[in-house]
């Protein structure tokens, strides 16, 4: 089938198989930040945005993006680097494999929640698994980042 989409700000018209997942489509189109950790919608590694809302691309049927806008980490590199610096400052990126999906979810959270409490942050990010860090350093990074953003607002 033919789909029309905007991928990281760039218009795209492509003939694609209807049974392809969004994840495979994105990797084939050069968005190599997108990772598959489980394939069963449990780990959050494949998180990208469709019209600004986080979705799990491993289980997102490609036809659904027809007429919609898709954003991956490649499309928000500057923001990712800004938040990522706080992760790096805590050593919270570790192996880094879950970082893209995690960062996409954090950046979406930032747009959605005003001054979230730790409980809200954890609830928002619950679907992002990480086997390396135990999550504490990620929370330190998020808090410092949000505080800084708050100060500069």
């Amino acid at each position: 089938m033919l789909i029309t989409t905007v991928l990281n700000g760039k218009s795209l018209r492509q003939e694609v198989p209807a049974d392809k997942t969004l994840l495979d489509f994105l990797r084939e189109n050069g968005c190599l930040s997108v990772k598959r950790g489980c394939g069963t919608e449990n780990c959050g590694l494949c998180t990208v945005w469709v019209d600004g809302t986080p979705v799990l691309s491993c289980s997102y049927p490609l036809p659904r993006i027809d007429g919609h806008e898709v954003t991956t980490l490649e499309g928000v590199r500057e923001e990712a680097a800004a938040f990522g610096a706080y992760m790096a400052g805590e050593g919270a990126e570790q192996c880094g494999y879950c970082s893209p999906g995690f960062i996409m979810t954090v950046l979406a959270m930032e747009r959605e929640l005003r001054n979230p409490a730790e409980e809200e942050i954890n609830a928002y990010l619950a679907g992002c698994l990480c086997r390396c860090t135990g999550y504490s350093s990620q929370m330190r990074a998020i808090r410092k980042y949000l505080e800084k953003r708050h100060e500069t607002d």
């Binding site: 490649e74 990712a80 680097a81 938040f83 990522g84 992760m87 790096a88 893209p100 960062i103």
Partner: peptide
């Protein structure tokens, strides 16, 4: 390698 990892 932090910068590379957090920018995907």
């Amino acid at each position: 390698d932090a910068q590379a990892l957090v920018t995907g």
